[in-house]
């Protein structure tokens, strides 16, 4: 497939405008790979949540969006990472209704529900979240 030759998008995250750039890039790749509108919206929203967390809690980081489609599946892989102080209580952060910033507390648990795979690693040296959206061709 032609799309798989595209280099991964690497979006630096420094200010709130980068959140918009990242979610747009995610939606575009989603659309190009033939995901439906529902999945496009899910992924764009998930990327928006995760990249905002970076700006809000770690000041800066980056978002990598890759096409990892295979012969049988269309697949988008997104990694959002930062070198911030990490998440002190991961279990709590993944609990519905929990927010340290006065948000609605839907951030991480909500994002997890939007994607097919969700993986988080957080240490005092930084946080790295990987999400994957796949669909059989």
């Amino acid at each position: 497939m032609r799309m798989s030759e595209l280099p991964p998008a690497q979006i630096p995250l420094h200010e709130t405008a980068d959140v918009v750039t990242a979610r747009r890039a995610a939606r575009e790749l989603c659309e190009q790979l033939g995901f439906g509108k529902a999945d496009q919206t899910r992924l764009a929203t998930a990327v928006s949540e995760l990249t905002r967390n970076v700006i809000q809690y770690a000041n800066h980081g980056e978002c990598v969006i890759e096409n990892r489609s295979t012969a049988t599946h269309r697949c988008i892989w997104v990694q959002v990472r930062d070198q911030g102080a990490g998440i002190a209580n991961l279990e709590q952060a993944l609990t519905d209704g929990y927010s340290t910033s006065g948000g609605l507390g839907a951030g991480l648990p909500g994002t997890r529900r939007l994607v097919d795979q969700f993986h988080i690693e957080s240490t005092p040296q930084g946080t790295c979240i990987t999400i994957v959206l796949t669909k059989p061709l």
């Binding site: 509108k37 529902a38 496009q40 919206t41 899910r42 929203t45 519905d96 609605l104 507390g105 839907a106 648990p109 909500g110 994002t111 529900r113 939007l114």
Partner: peptide, 16 residues
């Protein structure tokens, strides 16, 4: 509110 926005908001959590 767009249909896919509604869908995503409800999937993410109640009362958004």
């Amino acid at each position: 509110v767009q249909p896919f926005v509604a869908l995503t908001l409800v999937e993410m959590g109640r009362d958004l």
